[in-house]
């Protein structure tokens, strides 16, 4: 009756509210935890101590070189057809503008095909705004990550993107972007749905829109750490079932949702099992990834460092898409692997978490490891509003719900325990 023991302890028993309370203490203490910052390193030290306080002894850290992009002053003023402040967030690691800013006319494209069909003369010297409608994150986020490169190739002097979200109260959403090789690095930022749509309407009426963009930032490299907390298995300690979330966040908001919730349900798994004196046959490893936001930097470093032992990863799990009410798992793996996980999920019908969604690339950090053939899963949860808050000042504790966090922590812990304890390994392709 392991499932019931874990669920009761977390949902009704001594652990009730603990995940939320510890997350709140953490978020209130450290706030945002950007890659390369001192506050991120202090928050890592705090999590190590929090695990030690629970009598977890197998804790290691692994150093990783990470980007340290620091946002400076940013503002955009619409100069024509009228003066208006435009809310923005620069996209890391955007370059700065000259101190006086960049003043230019805006040209708007709905998608990359429209840009490709425009002549260089039409784009050269202008600010390009991409205004795609949000469909799915995966489909739409390319306009954040690639817009600067695509616009620069056509001669643009800066690029803007309509924030990657379905909903806005004039909230810009930051995120990462990548400069391609051999293109001019131009400043790039996200603006709000409201301002992007305003500019679109003006331009569609053949009204000239002129902006002044001022953005300052610095970029260097620092050393950070992935953190590994092990609850050693009783029979096959070399074999791993990994639960994980990332500890870094963007510099706006406080990273309570992205990915404080995922971090703390993954912290909770070995803690709950230790408290209940439940030790599965295989080792449960909780990983707190560093520097996920600038490009899965911690995950790439872990994959490289542990490549020779990757056969020992029996299953890898990650929560980085919200810790709202759990619905089940988004699973990548062989047919037999999915069948085993499906049978395990049947045990969670009572809490509404028995859905198995097939997904070739669940999670963010763990995608790096899953693509090498390791089976894994992301937490499938009721996250319809996740992108309302994602990478904004709104990512605070108010997004989190204590009862939903309890359900996630209980589900996460019980699933990891069962996978780590059953007779069969999770088979690969």
């Amino acid at each position: 009756e392991v499932r019931d023991e874990i669920l009761n302890y977390v949902i009704n028993g001594e652990f009730k509210g603990k995940t939320f309370d510890e997350l709140a203490k953490f978020v209130d203490t450290f706030g945002a935890r950007p890659s390369g910052s001192e506050v991120l390193e202090k928050s890592i030290d705090y999590m190590i101590q929090l695990a030690r306080d629970e009598d977890l002894k197998d804790i290691t850290t692994e150093e990783v070189e990470v980007p340290h992009w620091v946002r400076g002053e940013e503002n955009i003023t619409m100069l024509e057809p009228r003066v208006k402040n435009i809310a923005l967030l620069g996209l890391g690691p955007s370059v700065s503008t000259p101190p006086e800013g960049i003043t230019a006319e805006v040209i708007v494209f709905n998608d990359f095909d429209e840009l490709e069909n425009a002549t260089n003369d039409e784009v050269t010297g202008k600010i390009v705004l991409f205004d795609p409608e949000f469909t799915t994150y995966g489909e739409t986020v390319v306009y954040r990550s690639q817009s600067a490169t695509k616009a620069a190739a056509k001669g643009a002097v800066a690029s803007l993107v309509r924030s990657i979200t379905q909903f806005s109260i004039n909230s810009p959403h930051t995120g990462s972007q990548v400069y391609g090789d051999d293109v001019n690095k131009i400043p790039t930022a996200a603006i709000t749905l409201e301002d992007a749509d305003l500019i679109r309407r003006l331009v569609d009426r053949d009204v000239k829109v002129k902006l002044n963009i001022r953005m300052q930032s610095t970029l260097d490299t620092k050393t950070s750490r992935n953190t590994l907390v092990d609850l050693k298995g009783t029979v096959l300690p070399e074999k791993l079932v990994i639960v994980s979330g990332h500890i870094d966040s963007w510099d706006v908001g406080q990273g309570a949702m992205d990915d404080g919730g995922g971090l703390f349900v993954s912290w909770a798994a070995p803690v709950i099992l230790k408290r209940l004196n439940l030790r599965p046959k295989r080792t449960i490893r909780s990983i707190f990834w560093t520097a996920e936001e600038p490009g899965l930097v911690g995950a790439y470093a872990y994959e490289k460092k542990h490549r020779n032992e990757s056969d020992n990863i029996n299953f890898i799990m990650e929560s980085d898409e919200g810790t709202f009410a759990p619905l089940g798992l988004a699973v990548s793996g062989s047919q037999k692997a999915r069948c085993i996980i499906g049978e395990i999920l049947k045990l969670f019908e009572s809490i509404g978490a028995s859905e198995l969604v097939e997904d070739d690339s669940p999670g963010s950090d763990i995608a790096v490891i899953i693509k090498t053939g390791v089976p894994g899963a992301g937490l499938h949860n009721a996250n319809e509003k996740y992108f309302w808050f994602h990478h904004t000042e709104g990512d605070t504790m108010n997004v989190e719900d204590p009862d939903e966090l309890d359900l996630c922590a209980a589900f996460w812990t019980a699933v990891a325990y069962i996978i780590a304890d059953i007779s069969d390994d999770i088979p690969r392709e």
């Binding site: 009756e1 019931d4 045990l347």
Partner: peptide, 25 residues
């Protein structure tokens, strides 16, 4: 997405493993 059919899983896993997993509940 498409979920695995129950019958496919039953033959892949076998009764013993299915019963073992169910025993955790």
């Amino acid at each position: 997405r498409v979920l695995s059919k129950e019958s496919v899983c039953q033959s892949l896993l076998g009764e013993e493993l299915i019963h073992e997993i169910a025993s955790y509940g």
